[in-house]
């Protein structure tokens, strides 16, 4: 395999994010991972929905599908099933992934397609200037909750584990080496790999600063990664800033299941259309 330069993966469009946005770290980690895995740009597909982080595909020299708000995962699964050779990476924000598109998260996890799903979580809707998101803490004042957030945030790590995701991790833009390391592992994982990436919004979120997040963050301890109970216990830690790989198991992917069905159906050779028409003979 030829050695590849990191510059090969730079897209022609320059990032439109604010200076110091956490999403830059994700983009940089992706460039590094692509280079280290020697992935050909034409073999990579980045899929996204709507939001600041969903602009990411435009900044990469690869194939990209910047689609509709919330529908990132089914779109990515359609691409992967149509061509399982591709490395398909779905990227979303917490609004796209945990708000409007949350239902697809659960259903995609249980199907276990070989997708990498990176949710850049800044705990608010940044593209629309700072409203409450599904991961915003209670009582926080935002433009759409001037009297404070009334509901509990969701727990994406616990939800992923319970929904059947086979690789569940949390990373943080403020710790780019760990992010890159987890991304590498996710790429190597054959199955649905979900990484919640805490990615600070420096413009609209004055609370979750790099400083406070770095203080809250700690690495998950060593334990058997297939231990679902332990993983869930850790996922429910109050502060929610444990970083690292929570859970990893191997389970057949939906592409494998599809291939099996197709191979079994074609055991006696591919079918002929003429035979199908005969079935409708009077």
């Amino acid at each position: 395999m030829t050695k590849r330069s990191i510059l090969e993966y730079r897209g022609e469009v320059s990032p439109v994010w604010c200076s110091f946005c956490g999403d830059y770290a994700v983009l940089n980690s992706l460039y590094q991972v692509f280079q280290r895995k020697k992935l050909a740009p034409e073999e990579i597909v980045l899929v996204s929905g709507i939001g600041c982080s969903s602009r990411l595909p435009h900044f990469v020299n690869a194939y990209g599908f910047h689609g509709v708000h919330g529908r990132t995962l089914p779109t990515a699964m359609g691409i992967k099933l149509a061509n399982p050779q591709l490395t398909v990476i779905a990227v979303a924000g917490d609004g796209d992934g945990f708000g409007i598109g949350l239902g697809h998260f659960i259903h995609t996890a249980r199907k276990n397609p070989d997708l990498k799903y990176l949710v850049m979580d800044n705990s608010l809707y940044a593209q629309t200037k700072g409203q409450v998101s599904p991961t915003t803490c209670p009582h926080r004042v935002t433009p759409s909750t001037p009297y404070g957030v009334m509901e509990e945030p969701i727990n994406p790590i616990a939800l992923a584990i319970l929904s059947g995701a086979t690789f569940v991790a949390r990373a943080y833009s403020g710790k780019p080496e760990l992010l890159t390391e987890l991304l590498l592992q996710a790429i190597d994982h054959p199955g649905f790999a979900f990484i919640q990436i805490i990615s600070p919004c420096v413009t609209f979120n004055p609370t979750d600063t790099y400083r406070s997040l770095t203080q809250k963050s700690y690495l998950v301890s060593d334990y058997p990664l297939e231990d679902r109970v332990k993983a869930l216990e850790l996922a429910q830690a109050e502060d929610r800033m444990a970083l690292g790989l929570f859970y990893r198991v191997r389970r057949p992917t939906i592409e494998e299941a599809v291939r099996e069905i197709v191979e079994a159906a074609q055991r006696e050779g591919p079918a002929e259309l003429a035979g199908l028409v005969e079935e409708f003979n009077v």
């Binding site: 995962l73 359609g78 099933l81």
Partner: peptide, 27 residues
């Protein structure tokens, strides 16, 4: 399946058309 294709029942119609558009993008 005997023709090398597949049908997926999705969680809703949004996911259905999204998956179909993904497959179309991939050729």
């Amino acid at each position: 399946p005997p023709f090398g294709g597949i049908v997926l029942q999705m969680e809703d119609e949004l996911a259905a058309l999204a998956a179909v558009l993904g497959a179309s993008f991939a050729g």
